[in-house]
Design a protein around this nucleic acid. Sequence first.
DNA 1: AGGCCTTGGTTCAAGTTTGAAACAAAACTA
DNA 2: TAGTTTTGTTTCAAACTTGAACCAAGGCCT
Lengths: 171, 171
Amino acid sequence: MTTRWLSPDEQRAWRAYIAASLLLEDAIDRQLQQDAGMPHLYYSILSVLSESPERRLRMTDLAERLKITRSRLTYAVTRLEKDGMLRREACRYDKRGSIAALTDEGFAVLERAAPGHVETVRGFLFDRLSEEQVGQLEEISAAIAQGLQEDGTRPAADDVPWRRRSSSSCS
Amino acid sequence: MTTRWLSPDEQRAWRAYIAASLLLEDAIDRQLQQDAGMPHLYYSILSVLSESPERRLRMTDLAERLKITRSRLTYAVTRLEKDGMLRREACRYDKRGSIAALTDEGFAVLERAAPGHVETVRGFLFDRLSEEQVGQLEEISAAIAQGLQEDGTRPAADDVPWRRRSSSSCS
DNA sequence: AGGCCTTGGTTCAAGTTTGAAACAAAACTA
DNA sequence: TAGTTTTGTTTCAAACTTGAACCAAGGCCT
């Protein structure tokens, strides 16, 4: 089959999107690196933990929410643990499991960094978009994410009638 | 001043966006790594070069178009040169300058990889969006990028009445 | 010409990401 | 229950990114 190339509109959208996402991630990484001494992903880890029940989550669940590989998470958590931002705990119900628990210090760091981070996100993103566009951005993002999450390299989709396990809290 | 936190709508949009951009870049990187043996950025370098006059561009111009640091580009170009995808040439008019020139082999690799790449972008992005949304995505991205490009850490903005130099072709 | 600031690129070390492999503990299955 | 497969996590080496430092060379003064 001959390739369906991108239309000029699609080309422009694609390039604009690539540029914007690169620039935005860079700006946010730099801000957080400066003000909190950690890149965006690491901040997000603390943030997700802070909103979880008892401020703790199993590694796999954490990785799933952040859309990153377990291996990447392991590395990040090791660093954050070294820095005292969180602690690893064993899972009582599943001896394989390991739980990342936010420490008080981690929470404090998060609280101190949050205002600056929000300012940045606002300044570079939301202040530049209309309310309408915010809605559009969410819908577009959701559509993209959905397509990419239908279980990664799935087995044809009609092969798995039930939905994936929701979570495995533990603790 | 007390922080203006994100509204629920903004929160959702932000999280959806982060997830989508992570997932999308990952998917594209994986596809290109598989089919062309290089990550997305490296492919983009070849792609930009292929569309430039004489298929060559100065390092700084290349970095500017791709929105990456010169140092990152240096590393990437070194790898691509080692792989024979491009060649570095001296700049005749500016002895500091160095020009990246796509080789025939690089062009060939690009041509072979392009269809698969476009399929992927289409499958994960454009096939999931309405025509309208494509337009919205472009506008949103452009707005974001614009805000982030007003000359990085600029000197107060009212300090530089003229616009930055456009380019420095050479060769 | 002689200084001095800027620009174009690279280098280097430290930090991060990737993907495959290794392990150990569940969960099945025969 | 032993054997096999799956799941949860880490480990390791190779590749990549970051940011600061460095080295020319070009531009501007005076």
